[in-house]
Design a protein around this nucleic acid. Structure first.
Lengths: 116, 116
DNA sequence: TGTCAAGGTATCCATCGGATACTGGTTACT
DNA sequence: AGTAACCAGTATCCGATGGATACCTTGACA
């Protein structure tokens, strides 16, 4: 089964693309690259994300088995997020994209400004 | 400049990620893999996209230099979309993602259903 | 006269992302 | 005793965005 049927809206590869294509998931994976992080740490590291949306993103990624959420019964509360092996394996494709983005950034910016 | 500053909301890599992360752009690139296509061809090939959104996607990709739009002065009208070399170069990272998606699909679906 | 083709717009509505404010339990400080 | 701080989120509201549906144009043809 090659990805010819990616064009089918019910194709499950589409489900995965939508998750990866999510605005914040990629950044969460990058932020967790070097080990577990806490909610506020993620929030301040990833610039521009609001707590509501970060929570939604983390919950969705947890549902999909990309990361684990561990709650410590302490005060003040502590919650640690950590990538699962599945989540870690995302680094390869994500690196492919960020590398591409860095390599071709100027072309895109140039094209965009040419039509201004 | 490594992608440490991807976390900065003003980082331009983020701009590119948002474009790639767009729900339909990836599918457009895949649909144009084998050469130019016409609007209706894209529309029917890519399941579930409405004309308005497809137009928005194509216009944005054109602005960013990922594809060209060629209008033939005929009746009925003919418009062909074709990837630029820049757009073609996207296939490498996109393949990395779709391959990952196909490889880990069942894990994700299993995780998702485990919490149902 | 009416219909069809292709490549879109126009219009409307639902959903989602984002901004801001607030909560709760405990410990530390005054 | 009172109060501020800490952390991980909710609660609420609003504007932007995505999607569904209907419609437009022009020329050939029945």
């Amino acid at each position: 089964m090659k990805h010819e049927d990616v064009f089918n809206p019910d194709c499950q590869v589409r489900l995965v693309l939508d998750r990866i294509g999510d605005k914040w998931s990629v950044l969460v994976v990058l932020a967790l690259r070097d080990g577990p992080r806490r909610f506020t740490g993620l929030r301040t590291t990833i610039g521009g994300v609001t707590p509501k949306v970060l929570t939604q993103t983390l919950r969705a990624m947890e549902r999909d088995g990309l990361l684990t959420r561990r709650v410590f019964a302490e005060v003040p509360p502590r919650v640690e997020y950590e990538l699962t092996p599945l989540g870690l394996s995302l680094h390869a494709p994500i690196d492919a994209i960020t590398d591409w983005a860095e390599a071709h950034l100027d072309e895109i910016v140039a094209a965009r400004e040419a039509t201004t």
